[in-house]
Simulated assay, not measured.
Amino acid sequence: MKLGLQLGYWQAQPPTNHAELVKAADESGFDAIFTAEAWGSDAFTPLAWWGRETRNVRLGTSIVQMSGRTPTSIAMHALTLDHLSGGRMVLGMGVSGPQVVEGWYGQPFSKPLARTREVVEIIRKVLAREGAVTNDGPHYPLPYRGEGSVGLGKPLKPITHPLRADIPIWLGAEGPKNVAQTAEIADGWIPIFYTPGSAGMYQPWLDEGFARPGARRTRADFEIAATCHLEIVPDAAAKQAAIDAMKPFAALYMGGMGAKDANFHKQVFERMGYEQLAGTVQELYLTGRKDEAAAMIPDALIEDLHIIGTEGEVKEKVAQWAETGVTTLMLSLRTTDEVRRIADLLA
């Protein structure tokens, strides 16, 4: 199992230590670094900026929001970064949610699975560069002939020859149909809550996708890049403090991420068996009682979602994650010492 450094997206100000974290990851044997985006910083620019000094790590987006760019624009970003990095680009994408898609990008959220399939197909056509890129689908027609068209759209193929036609495409997916489609059409999957405790729930969905005619990958060569917080602690008291510190983040995803009736993260927790808890946490969170919501999160859930413990406990838990089929652990780390210590421990 490989290690990835999850840099995430920027908060109110740009981070001050990501260059150092990236350098440490590149020198310590990490396989990849990943950047994200919400409605502030974008995912591609930091990879170009911080990745320019790296030699070893792959450069991945986790994730690019598909509604923020046309499929051909996403392909251009990936094509460019793949050339600049010497073939180290990993394109991670996702549909995001209706609040962001319609509220920030001004695009319709409906038909997310069909839109995802079209985006992937168009990007692969661009990277293959076998001819002019066209698409007959309803979501991203190429050439465009709809309302407002002047009728002069011309099928094109990229001027720049892609370095690789098979840049890995990983998809963020949470629900049964989306996970199955990801296993069918993608090279990898970026789950948000894939853990030793929940892994069994996902296996039939993945198997359904792998079994579809024309599936791109098999379980043997399909990547699962799971995200978690990993923290080495000296004793039980420090472990409890670390667990407590993660509860507000679990409460945010369970209760405050997305619209009340369209919180896809909450739905994952419900499928994991926390339906009653998720409802209570959401009610507390949406009424401003965030501390009470966090206090409802049980220790056992945090211990399943994340890897927290002494060095021995961490090694044991990492092995459990590997047994579930995880090929890459995406870790959010705060210091270069943490990066190097974890790399040494798990080497």
Rank of each mutant, 00 (worst) to 15 (best):
170 W>T: 08
136 D>P: 14
147 E>Q: 09
162 P>K: 01
141 P>I: 02
177 K>E: 09
148 G>M: 10
144 Y>L: 00
164 R>A: 06
147 E>H: 13
150 V>G: 13
154 K>P: 07
153 G>C: 01
162 P>A: 08
157 K>F: 06
136 D>Q: 14
150 V>A: 12
146 G>N: 07
146 G>C: 09
175 G>K: 07
177 K>M: 11
138 P>L: 14
143 P>D: 06
148 G>D: 03
142 L>Q: 10
164 R>G: 09
135 N>E: 13
133 V>Q: 12
169 I>Y: 02
142 L>W: 05
143 P>E: 02
158 P>Q: 07
139 H>C: 07
165 A>E: 09
145 R>Y: 08
135 N>R: 03
159 I>S: 10
158 P>I: 04
181 Q>R: 05
145 R>E: 15
176 P>L: 01
138 P>E: 09
172 G>V: 02
134 T>H: 06
151 G>F: 00
161 H>G: 15
135 N>K: 06
140 Y>D: 02
165 A>C: 13
180 A>V: 07
135 N>C: 15
157 K>R: 14
139 H>D: 10
153 G>P: 00
181 Q>G: 12
162 P>D: 01
144 Y>R: 01
177 K>T: 13
172 G>R: 08
170 W>P: 09
160 T>C: 13
149 S>C: 03
144 Y>Q: 01
172 G>E: 11
132 A>P: 11
154 K>Y: 09
150 V>S: 08
145 R>W: 09
163 L>H: 07
168 P>I: 05
164 R>M: 04
146 G>Y: 09
169 I>N: 01
167 I>G: 04
181 Q>H: 11
151 G>Y: 00
148 G>L: 12
177 K>D: 05
145 R>V: 07
136 D>K: 15
173 A>H: 03
146 G>S: 04
176 P>V: 02
172 G>L: 00
132 A>V: 10
182 T>I: 04
147 E>G: 14
157 K>D: 13
171 L>P: 01
145 R>M: 11
134 T>N: 08
163 L>V: 04
164 R>I: 08
158 P>F: 00
140 Y>E: 07
151 G>K: 04
162 P>H: 08
144 Y>A: 01
145 R>S: 13
136 D>L: 05
165 A>H: 06
180 A>E: 02
152 L>W: 14
149 S>L: 00
141 P>K: 14
179 V>E: 01
172 G>F: 02
158 P>G: 05
166 D>F: 13
161 H>R: 14
148 G>Q: 06
156 L>V: 14
148 G>N: 05
156 L>P: 01
143 P>W: 05
133 V>Y: 05
163 L>E: 06
169 I>E: 00
178 N>D: 13
144 Y>M: 01
163 L>I: 12
161 H>L: 15
175 G>P: 14
160 T>R: 10
137 G>M: 06
150 V>H: 15
177 K>A: 14
140 Y>R: 06
182 T>G: 10
166 D>W: 07
155 P>R: 12
147 E>T: 12
170 W>I: 09
139 H>S: 13
168 P>S: 02
139 H>T: 12
142 L>C: 11
170 W>G: 03
175 G>Y: 05
141 P>D: 03
162 P>Y: 03
181 Q>A: 08
171 L>H: 02
152 L>G: 15
